[in-house]
């Protein structure tokens, strides 16, 4: 009796594997899946799209931030060198032009310093997004993977059920026994899939909300120096221009 039980459980495992593999093949080969089964997962698939977009745009944001940061550094360096150069040349020139050069050089050096101060908030943004990607996104990604595995199990079980439903007679004991076995399999895979489906939907919602939160938090803090900088530079330019006008030849 126990040998028989063991035997039948081995057969059951084998059958489960067969239908799971069949479903995997359908998915991998891109064959058309049951439209009703696909339609019943529409909400989930919508959330998955949102998740992939979050994943992608976070990656892009990281890249852009990194580039931005690097370019600021280069620019600041060049600006500073130009400033130093102008100041050196200005100190050699004893005319008013020299004075202007010195003033402009000073302004450029100052501006290059200011520009560098943008790096800190940018680095912070980078770190925050990186942490978000590393923790929140990868956590959701794990759940998504679990869900996909469970979805394959469930859809495989549905294929199996469809197969045994072709010839079903409730008055035939043997057929019913088989059907009950498949039904139990569908029920258990459905329960775990529904749970993971729900988890994924909730996690993606949370992920979207927390990213909004993160960005609005990080972007309001460094906003101050970003907006400060052009104003300072504008003021500096005005100042230089004023000097220029005063020292224009023919006037003085």
């Amino acid at each position: 009796m126990s040998a028989h039980d063991q035997n039948s459980s081995v057969v059951k495992k084998f059958q489960q594997k067969y239908w799971r593999t069949k479903q995997t093949l359908i998915k991998v080969s891109g064959r058309k899946e049951d439209e009703h089964v696909v339609a019943s997962d529409a909400e989930l698939d919508g959330k998955l799209e949102v998740f992939h977009s979050i994943q992608r745009t976070c990656m892009e944001l990281l890249k852009v931030t990194e580039q931005y940061q690097r370019r600021i550094c280069n620019f600041s360096q060049e600006e500073n060198e130009l400033g130093v150069f102008l100041r050196a040349q200005g100190s050699r020139d004893k005319t008013r032009a020299g004075k202007i050069m010195q003033a402009t050089g000073k302004a450029l050096c100052f501006s290059s310093q200011q520009r560098l101060s943008l790096r800190n908030p940018l680095c912070r943004l980078y770190q925050e997004v990186e942490t978000f990607r590393y923790r929140a996104i990868s956590d959701t990604w794990l759940t998504v993977n679990h869900m996909e595995q469970s979805r394959t199990e469930y859809r495989g079980a549905l294929l199996w059920m469809k197969d045994v439903s072709q010839e079903l007679d409730p008055d035939t004991h043997k057929q019913m026994e088989k059907f009950r076995k498949v039904q139990a399999q569908v029920r258990s895979t459905k329960t775990s899939f529904d749970k993971l489906k729900n988890d994924v939907c909730q996690k993606v919602d949370l992920l979207g909300a927390s990213r909004c939160n993160l960005l609005s938090h990080v972007l309001t803090t460094p906003a101050t120096p970003i907006w400060m900088l052009p104003r300072n530079r504008a003021e500096l330019r005005c100042f230089s221009l004023l000097l220029c006008r005063q020292t224009r030849p023919g006037r003085g």
Partner: peptide
């Protein structure tokens, strides 16, 4: 809905 194709049989 996910059982629609099955119930058709």
């Amino acid at each position: 809905e996910s059982f629609r194709s099955i119930t058709r049989s």
